[in-house]
Amino acid sequence: MARYGMVMNVKTCLGCKACMAACSQWNQTPFWAEDGGKWRTRVTELQEGKFPEVKREFFPTICMHCVNPPCHSVCPTGATYINKDGIVLIDYDLCLGCGYCIEACPYDARYEYEKEDLEKDEFYFGEDARHHQVHVDKCTFCVDRLAEGEEPSCAATCVGHARIFGDLDDPKSEVAQLVNSGKAKPLGEYMGAQPKVYYIK
């Protein structure tokens, strides 16, 4: 048993989007969807101020794997569940595709893997396609990589070392230290979902 979490260090995110590419290739997410794809992780550019006092920031987001996830409470079938390691997951067989969770998630982490996405998945990945049914999709902390003893795809490749993944219960881990020292804080704490993804800004 672990309590997995991630720290996003916005200070060192280089805006390279390697994470988005990495996630999409491991998880076969619909990069092909119109208007710039559907993603489990995104890097959003923020800007403030006027030239030359303008500040540009790259802001990475994923599913926050909340302790108290609103998506979980609205799911009518119990498809959304929290596994033993605290990872919020979806049982595709139980998912009705009603989309309540998509609306409920305050962090915009979910999207629908649609019929045409399944076709495209097969077009791009052939026999190795992983998605065979319509379902709601979101970040899984790459639970299948964890099972193989590997880091999540996005964190493993993060060039800026802006994604620090680990076990929050292991006081020696970098994530735990950053969280316990108060250096990293969750987003939108007031919403009460208690995310396990923390930010250094």
Binding site: L96, Q133, L187
Partner: peptide, 23 residues
């Protein structure tokens, strides 16, 4: 990015009802 505005709904039109047909 956080779609704070959509906390109260809206902005979710991409979820096409047709796609829900059957698993």
């Amino acid at each position: 990015f956080l779609k704070i505005s959509s906390l109260v709904g809206g902005g979710l039109m991409f979820f096409k009802p047709t796609a829900k047909a059957g698993l």
